[in-house]
Amino acid sequence: MNGMRSWIARRLLLGAVQTAAVVLLVFALTEALPGDAAVAFAGDQPDPQRIAAVREAMGLDRPAHERLADWVLGLLHGDFGTSLTSGRPVAGFLADGFGPTLLLAAVTVLLLVPVGVGLGVLAARHEGRFTDRLISSATLGVYAVPEFALGALLVSVFALRLGWFPPTAVGYGTGLLAHPAVLVLPVLVLLARPVCSLARLVRAGMIEALAAPYTAHAERYGIPGARVRYAHALPNALAPATQQLARTVDWLLCGVIVVEALYVIPGLGTVLMNAVADRDIPVVQGLAVVFGLATVVLNLGADLVTHRLAPRSGVAA
């Protein structure tokens, strides 16, 4: 277990380095972009004198390394800086956007895991037969439909034609939980492709696990079918699925721009889109830090779970 602890420590250290690298890269890339916030701020009549004034007011005329140092120091105190366009603290922006995104992600994952795993196990149990062919072809078909197409389709059918759900979240503010009907369509769109990839991964792993000698051995010794499937075979099938799940959660947390834009949900994706459009560098940088951290933590978690499920596989760190 000592080896495990040092592995986690190494992974956390590596995660910190990765996050720092993300921070630096984001800063360097935004520096490399032509134009800056002052140019964007000046709008359609770029008056060089006005731009220079704005630059001075924002401190953009200082050398890059000084601004980077300031920003990083602020980060360490939890200060993400100030938005250039609105003058509000970036932390506030992030907090506002985080709520809806987290809610969408949580609801999606809560449905994704049982549905994806359930479909995968069901297909594996009936390998090659009708149920399997149905699930396999349906998941392949749905996976091929991009989010924006599926989202538009669902809106036109269920919101505009049938009127069952509101088409967008406009007018509900950030209190989405109080209006579950708003969430149905976006969650369906978010679920569609991850359910398919998860189900297909679980199916493949499960077929292998069900054919393994240890599964035959458990059946031979009288363990009931459901227990054999879920307690003995499934853990072997979950290792690759866990990695896929971590990527999915990462994708959800980093703001699914298409879905948020389509349903006008004020989540992190919307914040990111607006910030990029406005060249609001501090907000973009703040988002990059948050997304980087989320990715690092989620993958560490997934590796831990994988290590638990497939203890023989050495996990590189």
């Binding site: 000698p213 240890y214 035959a216 009288g222 307690a231 003995h232």
Partner: peptide, 27 residues
Amino acid sequence: TRIGYVPQHPAAVLNPARRTGALLHDM
């Protein structure tokens, strides 16, 4: 009676993702 089986490679019938006691406890 039930019939027990000890295969040539015992590791093949031990579940790599479960602790050794899992099947014994289930039984």
